[in-house]
Write a protein that binds this DNA or RNA. Structure first.
Lengths: 277, 277
DNA sequence: ACGCATTTGTTCGTATGTATT
DNA sequence: TAATACATACGAACAAATGCG
């Protein structure tokens, strides 16, 4: 097993907790809160349908339109997915439609026509997503008491147990991203190197299916840095090569952070894609 | 005047035009299209109110709720801004609330509390926005017949006239971003170095006020690169320093591209911030 | 292949609440 | 205070998509 690429954590953002909850909220927003709590409690599992609008309206003694507006917002927040004629479903990283929702790296020469393509399976451990062949390989997975900075970002007490995962993403057959991932040990008790090695799908799908933790939202902070020696070796480039360093804090319901990830991305043939509205 | 930093344009994305317009659309979406056309025609100017919902409902012979749903989507697309009790207004880069909407660079040590602060004026040519002091200085502005790649991205014929602007953004008093901007010459006929020098606000506000071109949406493609000598000199760093290279294509109504911009960003003390939903 | 029941999507109309001028 | 405009809430009806018998 490769040694851990030694990294410094000099400037992680501090966690803030200034949620302002107004005392009086419109009815549909109260319904939204109630539904969110039921989702958070795991009353309906990812991929399952929630009760119909008419049923919920009766349940909460409000009109169907009010329930509808609450669900509209939850769907806009990617907590639910509406399907005409079928029902409203709990969003899931297991669905092909929403797999790799957070992956923003694209090949430079991607034809526009392939962008809408759905992920397709191919060789074991390999997947084609958004027109690019993707392979993930876990380098390391161990339990540790993490650095204070990580604990702070994850809103844990310093010294609390963490799971640390290192992995390489191959895109188009070339090692392109080295991910260093930290998870709170308490939430992910059975997460082992073996479990990860036997699994080939998206990490968030595994975390959702096995540990019931759904990643809803994430913040990313991106810098250009010179590749440290350890990282450079894994990506087969010279030390000092410019890399994208993407720091991600992923959050679940109620904005609770449950993952910190630092990705080192080689952008010779790829780029980070973003849309500004 | 400084010489143009020589850059290569090896891998700009090709422009695609595969808008699928379904023949039959719901009423509210037809209304949305009609309103968009009137906005595009400049019937209402940025910052001005559009007619009230009841008035539009009467005008188009539909219910107020249908107009409301159309406006909801236009507001979600940042074309309109709703203000309870006042009316619905054409979005504008001139408003303090939406100034620098597309600026994603943040100082590393920004306290969360300052994030919500509104931009405030200070010294001439200097502005405080999102907790950071910002100063823009134009290095160069000239007319030219641009490279074929630029023309392609802007969906112009090769050899059509372009305006090229180079500028430096100072953040916290340090040169941090070198922007190389290309605009279609035809749309921006009176744009000169002098006009830019006399103006200190956001560029998009100028383009909107003087030339009636509103930037609605943009796509960015980001790479980590080694600073070329010309860029390094402007940013006061050693050649080869890792920089964020942010390529932006800005679009106006109907997805028409009207700006290509390449930003070279020093991320020693700053980062590119992004939220994933 | 057809029709039926279910569920979300669209549209209308009305009434009332809240913010602004 | 009054008028105006957007925001919320209700109820009803029909359209469109889906799944099933």
């Amino acid at each position: 097993m490769a040694t851990s690429p030694s990294i410094e954590l000099e400037d992680l953002p501090a966690a803030a907790d200034d949620q302002v909850t107004p005392r009086f909220a419109p009815l549909y927003r109260q319904i939204k809160t109630l539904l969110t709590k039921r989702l958070q409690a795991g009353e309906w599992k990812p991929g399952e349908p929630i009760p119909s609008e008419t049923e919920l309206a009766a349940r909460y003694r409000v009109s169907q339109g009010t329930v509808r507006k609450a669900i509209d917002e939850l769907a806009a927040n990617n907590l639910l997915v509406r399907r005409q004629g079928r029902g409203t479903f709990v969003a899931s990283h297991l669905e092909v439609r929403t797999q790799f929702r957070f992956l923003r790296l694209r090949p430079d020469d991607l034809p526009q026509t392939e962008l809408s393509g759905e992920p397709s399976a191919s060789m074991p451990g390999e997947r084609s997503v958004q027109g690019q062949v993707l392979r993930s390989q876990v380098i390391e997975c161990r339990r540790m008491r993490g650095p204070a900075e990580i604990a702070r970002v994850l809103q844990l007490r310093a010294g609390e147990p963490l799971v640390q995962v290192h992995r390489v993403l191959d895109l188009e057959g070339k090692p392109t991203v080295l991910d260093e991932i930290w998870l709170p040990g308490a939430r992910f008790r059975g997460l082992t190197a073996e479990r990860l090695a036997n699994y080939s799908g998206p990490l968030y799908a595994l975390l959702e299916a096995e540990f019931g933790v759904r990643m809803i939202r994430a913040e990313e902070r991106i810098k250009a840095v010179a590749a440290p020696a350890g990282v450079a070796a894994v990506l087969h480039v010279k030390s000092g090569t410019p890399l994208l360093r993407v720091d991600r804090v992923s959050k679940t319901y109620d904005e609770a952070p449950v993952e910190f990830r630092r990705g080192w991305c080689l952008t010779e043939r790829h780029h980070y894609y973003n849309e500004l509205g």
